[in-house]
Amino acid sequence: MVDAATGDSLYAKNADLMTTPASTTKVLTAATVLAARGPAYRLVTRAVAGAEPGVVVLVGGGDPTLSVDAGGQFPGAARLDRLAAQVKKALGGQAPTRVVVDNSLFTGPETATGWDSDLIGAGQVARIQALMTNAGRVKPVHNDVGGDPRFSDPSLAAGKAFAKQLGISSVSKGKAPAAASSSAPVEGVAAGSELGKVQSPPLVHVVDWMLQQSDNVLAEAMGRQVALAAGKEASFDGAAGAMQDKLLELGLSSDEANLYDASGLSRHNGISPALLTEVLTLAANGTNPEVSSLFGGLPVAGWSGTLRTRFVTPAPNQVGQGLVRAKTGSLSGVNAISGALVTTDGRLLVFAVLADATGESGAARQALDRIAAKLVTCGCQ
């Protein structure tokens, strides 16, 4: 527990012990991607002309919030129907014949070391690909307790949805031709030339959604943006290395994080409570405005996101409602919470509590909430 204004540690126990962090990992993901890309950065999905007449290549830009149409999961998301309209206009009289899906921005395995084998089947996450709609969901609906069915191949599903918008059904996988291709223009459209593009909302909004709903796919996409900004490969390993490098660059204890993914689903991850409070202190002290913007996405106790139904029972925990903003984390046998709160004397504290040998998760969550609620009531002199 740290006083955000002074940086003074008010209480610590095993603070430097790296512990399984579950989804509190997303606090590090939020801080590093905001520092690496900036809150205003947007993710771009493009369509380019293929090497053959009528072929349209849909190029994934790593935007997991992409929507098929107005009925998407994420407000203000880029839309495939709008991209299709641009393509039709750019092609002029040339009728589209086939969609090729270019998923090459992300590399390496599509699932991380340390992920439980049933995570995708249970709908907790999708295969991590550079092109998908609604974070890989079959239907653009978020279930508070998880279990959102995901496409087995999110990029191919997005390609099929795009083809439907173009009025065709033929879809395959491949790579876009280089923009400087020597291929002759086909009815005025040169191979590799851009036919249209759509942009995500500003990155800060994507990070807000990631934190509010603890969206694992968004987290992995954000980790890869840290890697791309650093010139590293957009893979699980590339993201983990780039995130730790960015933490070091920010003056934080990067050696107190051992990362295998950016979402916290990996049971191999280790993060110390001290590092989590360091990140939150940096965000709170105003010295890095980009990192400070992560606070907007932290769920509010009893009000929003993953804390909407927390701090309800037992009754003494209710004092934390509206005064605690935090990221939670849970895996089987693992429970964590890290965030900020305001005490009765108006002091802003940042805190992290990680437990990796818990029993029944409901009781464990209430116990963690009780700690934060008690801090709200204290004078902390």
Rank of each mutant, 00 (worst) to 15 (best):
D116Q: 11
Q86R: 12
P75E: 03
K232E: 10
P64M: 03
V99F: 01
T29K: 05
H268W: 13
L368Q: 15
Y41C: 04
T344H: 06
N103Y: 01
G362R: 12
A95T: 13
G251I: 08
V56F: 00
L252A: 06
V141H: 07
A4G: 05
T328H: 06
D8E: 11
D148G: 01
F106R: 00
P140C: 15
A126M: 12
R82P: 00
L368T: 10
S235E: 06
L131S: 03
S152I: 14
C378G: 09
R46A: 05
L248W: 10
G359S: 15
G167A: 05
Q73W: 14
F106V: 03
S193V: 07
A70R: 09
A35F: 04
L276N: 02
L248I: 08
G302Q: 10
I271R: 02
V27Y: 12
L105T: 00
I120N: 04
Y260D: 03
V138K: 13
E233Q: 07
G322Q: 08
A4F: 05
V87D: 01
G296A: 11
E194A: 09
Q199A: 12
S338N: 07
E249G: 06
L83T: 00
K164E: 15
M210H: 11
G192I: 09
T107N: 00
S214M: 03
T6V: 08
L83S: 01
G223Y: 00
L348I: 15
R46L: 05
F74K: 03
V350K: 03
R46T: 13
T343R: 11
P185Y: 14
A135G: 04
L294R: 09
R224T: 02
G93E: 06
M243P: 09
A31L: 15
K246V: 12
L43D: 00
D345K: 06
L58N: 00
S155E: 03
I120Q: 06
V226R: 02
T25Q: 15
S183Y: 14
G264S: 06
V125P: 01
C378H: 09
D153Y: 11
S272H: 04
S181A: 14
R98H: 13
T6W: 04
G123L: 12
D8F: 08
M1W: 04
A22K: 07
P21V: 11
A161P: 02
A230D: 15
L10E: 04
L276A: 14
E233N: 05
V279E: 00
S182N: 15
K89Q: 14
S266A: 09
R310T: 09
A274V: 03
K327N: 11
S253H: 08
V186D: 04
Q129P: 00
V319G: 10
A284N: 14
T97F: 05
P202C: 14
L131A: 03
D116C: 10
A221T: 02
Q212M: 11
L348E: 06
Q318Y: 10
A301M: 08
L252V: 07
Q94S: 11
G322K: 08
L331S: 07
V279W: 01
S117Y: 09
V324I: 07
N14W: 12
